[in-house]
Design a protein around this nucleic acid. Structure first.
Lengths: 271, 271
DNA sequence: CAGTGGTCTAGACCACATG
DNA sequence: ATGTGGTCTAGACCACTGG
């Protein structure tokens, strides 16, 4: 659906060759030669304004790099620098062999520590879906073994999942849970699709976020693939620990966010 | 002091021209041509290993870009891509007209929400200093006016400050405080150098972090200058609100961290 | 002044996705 | 087969820093 929409816009851009695409006017403007600001940064500025102002439609495809370079009267390498910086900021996304696209909406999602992801987005008109990438049992990571106090041979439930907003993946997480506390995890998760439901089935009425750690970094290969961003794009790595009502840890979650699309908010709980 | 040390290392590197600098062995190794990994990424990998392993001393200056490019048998542009990525990650720092330096120590500092910066670093052997960049009174920012409930004409205390670890700036903050609650701010701060001291002098025995917001971004010009990083380097923007014991907001602080050098930890307070 | 990093160009080859 | 973005080269000029 969203892919078809992209395609239709592509034809819109390409069909009437003499058409004004909004970019062409920007490209024609002369550069400030005496400015200390490099040309590629001036191009970057104009592209950003065009995106913000909606002069280039979200989801639409930009002209090819060679054509853009010719429009802006610069070398392709110079053009690429401007484009690359916008990719780092999440406004553009290049797909090899296909083209460069204006990202859906560089929304920044406000994530509150005491809420689940879905709760944080209630009221927004976004279409939120989730996709399970992997579910199985395995030996725990060192941190999980320490956290859960597991002995040699104990296993953990491993769950890899992504969240998509308007079909754009913006977040994915790798969860580990002590297997002995959730004997029927696969079964219940398969029918409910919800980790909370598994908690309840295991007699855990509610849970509490005990610790959250946030660390910035650059997307590695697999992370970039899943989030549909280019490698070396800045991301936020979030590690979270959930406790059951008795204060026992039941979940270790390592998430990865596209940095451009999230803001984390922590309110003091005893407000 | 640290600058002098840098200079001495520079001469160390340059003095005996036939000397092995540790990098030369890495540079001689052949590239994996059939690998999908681009050459500039392979160079990036080797540089990273050399830095991590301490083969190139922290604070020392690398050979010039042209010399590096010739050592690694690639074009200067290719060499620059590898160097630029390490700058983004905070391992290297380029100074125009001077050279490229190995960053002091890409320590990541663990910042806990319920502690001040200095508290978070107790026990570490780092030399922590702070520098006041600006102190004055001004009209409040929109957010500060809303937070403090200020009327038209009310002023705020504005304090800009950086934190240095081993003389490396890693953090700076812009604070706003309601002026009417701290009539003697400048005076007390000048003698104590501490905001907490001003609080106490104003009858505020202790304060509480009421909200923290974290958002990633790329360093703008002034931020990059203060933190001694290149523009477009990833940073963390932190907005914090402090309350007095009665729950009244007394401080709005907007900080900027070099992303590579910090991890934020939030523990549930009612643990 | 010489050396440095920052910018820009013109051309080339490649792997990839699409029709 | 075509066009796309990703990579790489060889050369050039500039602004800045330091001695």
């Amino acid at each position: 659906m969203s892919k078809e929409e992209k395609c239709s816009i592509v034809t819109d851009l390409c069909a009437p060759c003499g058409q004004e695409s909004g970019l062409e006017e920007l490209a024609r403007r002369p550069y400030d030669e005496r400015s200390a600001r490099a040309i590629w940064l001036q191009i970057y500025d104009r592209l950003g304004q065009a995106i913000e102002a909606g002069q280039v439609a979200p989801g639409s495809k930009l002209p090819g790099e060679v054509q853009l370079a010719s429009m802006f009267r610069v070398n392709r390498v110079t053009m690429r620098r401007a484009l690359a910086l916008h990719q780092s900021e999440g406004k553009l996304q290049a797909r090899k062999g296909v083209g460069i696209f204006v990202r859906h909406r560089p929304h920044t999602f406000i994530i509150r520590d005491d809420m689940s992801f879905a709760e944080s987005l209630v009221g927004s008109s976004e279409d939120i879906t989730s996709r399970t990438l992997y579910l199985g049992r395995a030996r725990p990571s060192p941190e999980a073994a320490r956290l859960f106090g597991l002995a040699d041979g104990d296993e953990v439930i491993v769950l890899h999942r992504t969240r998509l907003v308007n079909n754009d993946p913006i977040y994915f997480t790798r969860k580990e849970l002590p297997a002995h506390r959730f004997p029927d995890f696969e079964e219940i998760y398969a029918t409910s699709g919800s980790v909370s439901a598994v908690y309840r089935a295991a007699g855990i009425a509610w849970f509490r976020r005990a610790q959250t750690r946030i660390r910035g970094g650059l997307a590695q290969g697999d992370e970039a693939d899943i989030l549909c961003i280019s490698t070396k794009t800045p991301v936020q790595h979030v590690t979270a620990v959930n406790h059951d009502p008795h204060g026992n840890p039941i979940e270790l979650s390592r998430g990865c966010w596209s940095m451009a699309s999230v803001e984390f908010v922590f309110d003091a709980s005893d407000k």
